[in-house]
Computed example of a mutant assay.
Amino acid sequence: MSDDQIAEERIDRLAAFARSMTLAGDEDRAREAVRLANRIAERHRCGVPRRFERFTCDACDAYLIPGRNARVRLQEGSHVVVRCDCGATARYPYGE
């Protein structure tokens, strides 16, 4: 296994851990997992999976779960608006 494959596998495991910690209510441990995953991705120059990237807050590093600590809305036009409890907003395109 190469270093990049190990890094990608570790990022995937940290993403799953962050999700489970957020669901369990331990948001501080979830934030640490998100920060660690981002540091590993930077160090190895590999990206994080799109689902992980879109469900983490850039401002506070929280793992976002719609309905629990994030609000997700479809805005007229063609983008999704995700708002974290901290007030940070992210917009992503969808559709054609």
Rank of each mutant, 00 (worst) to 15 (best):
A62L: 12
A37D: 02
T89D: 01
G25H: 10
Q5L: 13
L74M: 09
C84I: 02
S20L: 07
R43G: 10
R43V: 05
E42K: 14
F52E: 04
R50M: 12
P66C: 07
M21E: 10
R35F: 05
G95R: 01
R91Y: 00
R10K: 15
A90I: 08
F55V: 02
G25T: 01
E96C: 14
F17K: 11
P49K: 14
A7C: 09
V48A: 10
A18G: 04
Y63T: 10
T22P: 02
E9R: 11
R50H: 10
Y94S: 04
I11F: 07
H79G: 05
D61H: 13
R73A: 05
I65S: 03
Y94T: 10
V81Y: 02
A18Y: 03
L14C: 08
S2H: 13
A33G: 03
N69H: 03
D61Q: 13
D85A: 10
G87W: 11
Q5E: 13
D28V: 11
I65Y: 06
G47D: 06
R51F: 12
A88I: 00
V48M: 12
R31K: 15
V72S: 04
H44L: 04
P49I: 02
Y94Q: 01
P66A: 06
A62W: 09
A30H: 01
I11E: 07
R83F: 00
V72Y: 01
H44N: 12
V72M: 03
A15W: 06
R71C: 04
L14K: 07
L64D: 01
R45M: 05
R13C: 05
M1W: 14
P49H: 13
A15M: 07
A41E: 02
H79C: 15
R19F: 09
C86H: 04
A37L: 11
D12Y: 06
